[in-house]
Computed example of a mutant assay.
Amino acid sequence: MSSDVSPAEDAPSLPTIRVERGNPTPQQLAALTVVLAAASGEPAPAPARRTLWTARSRFARPRPSVGPGGWRASALPR
């Protein structure tokens, strides 16, 4: 069976960022990576939308109605 992938594509790629001099800390490398990623112009991924399962307002109960029949209206769905 023949493969459509060439041997050059199977080899691991070289690192994109290479430190020529010095001994940077992991924090400095992380800061550099963030700056370079921001300069690349690619938009940041959108935050995940919250579902109703995680909405706190879902657990808040409305105030009961005041007046005649208020106790009955408090049990009805809204």
Rank of each mutant, 00 (worst) to 15 (best):
Q28P: 00
D10R: 15
D4F: 07
A44G: 01
D10G: 02
A38F: 02
E20N: 10
P77M: 04
L29I: 14
G70I: 06
P47D: 10
D10H: 14
A37Y: 00
R49Q: 13
A48V: 11
N23A: 14
A46G: 00
V19N: 01
G67Y: 03
L52R: 13
S13I: 03
P62W: 02
A44Y: 05
L36C: 02
G70K: 04
T33G: 05
P45F: 00
P77C: 03
P15A: 05
W53S: 13
N23C: 06
Q27I: 03
G70R: 04
P68R: 14
P26V: 05
A11Q: 15
R72V: 14
P64D: 09
S65I: 01
E9W: 07
A48R: 12
T25I: 01
A48H: 11
A37H: 02
T51E: 09
A11D: 08
L52H: 10
P15I: 04
R63I: 00
P77G: 12
A39T: 04
R21D: 11
P43F: 06
A39M: 09
T51L: 13
T51A: 08
T51M: 07
A39H: 06
P45A: 07
I17M: 11
L32V: 09
R18E: 12
V35F: 02
R72W: 13
T16E: 10
A31W: 00
T51C: 06
G67I: 01
S65N: 06
A38K: 12
L32W: 05
Q28S: 13
R49G: 10
S13A: 15
G22A: 08
T54K: 07
R21Y: 09
D4W: 06
S2M: 10
A48D: 14
L76A: 15
P77L: 09
S65D: 11
A8F: 08
A48Q: 14
V19R: 05
E9A: 15
V19K: 04
N23P: 00
E42S: 06
P43G: 01
P77Q: 03
W71K: 12
A31V: 07
R50G: 13
S3T: 12
P7T: 01
F59W: 13
P45E: 09
A8K: 09
R61E: 08
N23K: 11
P64K: 04
P62G: 09
V35R: 04
V19E: 01
P45R: 02
S13N: 07
R21S: 12
Q28A: 15
A38D: 11
R49E: 15
A73N: 07
L14G: 06
R18T: 12
D4L: 13
R50V: 11
A60S: 13
V5Q: 07
D10W: 12
I17V: 15
E20K: 13
M1G: 12
A44P: 00
W53T: 09
E9N: 07
V66M: 11
S6A: 14
Q27K: 10
T51K: 07
L36M: 13
S40G: 13
